[in-house]
Lab assay of single mutants.
Amino acid sequence: NQASVVANQLIPISTHLTLVMMRSEVVTPVGIPAEDIPRLVSMQVNRAVPLGTTLMPDMVKGYA
């Protein structure tokens, strides 16, 4: 099972991601792979992401 990136807190819209905001967890459905966490740092979310939500490629500007 592959770990995905999950929000560690509420991430407001247009926030630049930091390591503190993300954790890796095995979830269904599978989202952005956990090994991409370093790549996600300083990218922006294009919507509010609630605590515990799996980050999907379409939620992060410039990821997909």
Score class of each variant (00 low, 15 high):
N1G: 15
N1T: 15
N1W: 14
N1R: 05
N1D: 15
Q2D: 14
Q2G: 15
Q2A: 15
Q2C: 12
A3G: 13
A3V: 07
A3D: 08
A3Y: 12
A3F: 09
S4R: 02
V5M: 02
V5A: 12
V5K: 01
V5W: 02
V6H: 02
V6Y: 02
V6C: 06
A7V: 06
A7M: 04
A7Y: 03
A7G: 03
A7L: 03
A7P: 02
A7D: 00
A7H: 02
A7Q: 01
A7W: 03
N8T: 11
N8I: 05
N8D: 11
N8Y: 03
N8A: 14
Q9T: 14
Q9F: 13
Q9M: 14
Q9E: 12
Q9G: 04
L10C: 15
L10V: 11
L10M: 13
L10H: 12
L10W: 10
L10A: 14
L10N: 15
I11C: 03
I11D: 00
I11M: 03
I11T: 00
I11Q: 01
I11L: 08
P12E: 10
P12L: 06
P12T: 08
P12K: 08
P12D: 09
P12C: 05
I13R: 13
I13L: 12
I13A: 15
I13M: 12
I13P: 11
I13S: 13
I13W: 12
I13K: 11
S14E: 13
S14K: 11
S14N: 15
S14I: 04
S14M: 14
T15A: 14
T15F: 09
T15S: 11
T15Y: 15
T15R: 06
H16D: 06
H16K: 13
H16G: 07
H16E: 08
L17E: 01
L17H: 00
L17Y: 02
L17D: 00
L17M: 06
L17Q: 00
T18K: 07
T18E: 07
T18Q: 11
T18C: 05
L19K: 07
L19N: 06
L19M: 14
L19Y: 14
L19W: 15
V20D: 09
V20W: 14
V20S: 14
M21P: 00
M21V: 03
M21T: 03
M21D: 04
M21H: 09
M21G: 00
M22S: 01
M22T: 00
M22L: 14
M22P: 00
M22F: 05
M22R: 00
M22E: 01
R23G: 06
S24H: 08
S24F: 06
E25R: 08
E25Q: 13
E25D: 09
E25L: 10
E25K: 09
E25W: 07
V26W: 09
V26K: 07
V27K: 09
V27T: 13
V27A: 07
V27S: 05
V27L: 04
V27Y: 03
V27Q: 05
T28Y: 10
T28N: 10
T28E: 15
T28I: 11
T28C: 10
T28D: 15
P29E: 06
P29V: 06
P29N: 05
P29G: 03
P29R: 05
V30N: 12
V30S: 13
V30C: 13
V30L: 13
V30F: 11
G31Y: 02
G31N: 01
G31H: 02
G31A: 03
G31E: 01
I32F: 02
I32D: 00
I32H: 02
P33I: 10
P33F: 09
P33C: 15
P33E: 04
P33L: 08
P33Q: 06
A34E: 09
A34M: 08
A34P: 05
A34H: 06
E35F: 10
E35A: 10
E35C: 13
E35W: 10
D36A: 13
D36S: 10
D36Q: 14
D36E: 13
D36G: 05
I37M: 12
I37V: 06
I37T: 07
I37K: 06
I37G: 03
P38V: 09
P38S: 13
P38Y: 14
P38E: 09
R39D: 06
R39H: 08
R39Q: 10
L40E: 00
L40V: 05
L40A: 00
L40F: 01
V41M: 08
V41C: 06
V41E: 05
S42I: 03
S42Q: 10
S42K: 13
S42C: 15
S42P: 00
M43P: 00
M43W: 06
M43G: 02
M43F: 10
M43Y: 07
M43C: 09
M43I: 04
M43E: 04
M43Q: 07
M43S: 05
M43T: 04
M43V: 04
M43K: 08
Q44A: 13
Q44F: 07
Q44T: 15
V45P: 01
V45Y: 00
V45M: 06
V45H: 00
N46S: 13
N46L: 15
N46R: 11
N46M: 13
N46V: 14
N46C: 10
R47T: 10
R47M: 11
R47E: 08
R47K: 11
R47Q: 07
R47N: 07
R47D: 06
R47C: 08
A48H: 10
V49Q: 02
V49W: 04
V49H: 03
P50D: 09
P50R: 11
P50G: 12
P50V: 07
P50H: 08
P50W: 05
P50F: 08
L51A: 14
L51Q: 13
G52Y: 04
G52R: 04
G52C: 04
T53H: 14
T53S: 10
T53E: 12
T53I: 10
T53C: 09
T53D: 13
T53V: 14
T53P: 01
T54Q: 03
T54F: 03
T54L: 04
L55N: 01
L55C: 03
L55H: 01
M56P: 01
M56E: 07
P57V: 06
P57F: 07
P57Y: 08
P57H: 09
P57E: 07
P57M: 07
D58A: 09
M59T: 05
M59R: 00
M59S: 06
M59H: 09
V60D: 00
V60L: 07
V60A: 02
V60N: 02
V60F: 05
V60M: 04
V60H: 01
K61W: 14
K61L: 14
G62D: 11
G62I: 04
G62C: 12
G62V: 04
G62S: 10
G62K: 07
G62W: 08
Y63L: 05
Y63H: 04
Y63F: 09
A64M: 15
A64I: 12
A64W: 06
A64S: 13
A64K: 12
A64V: 11
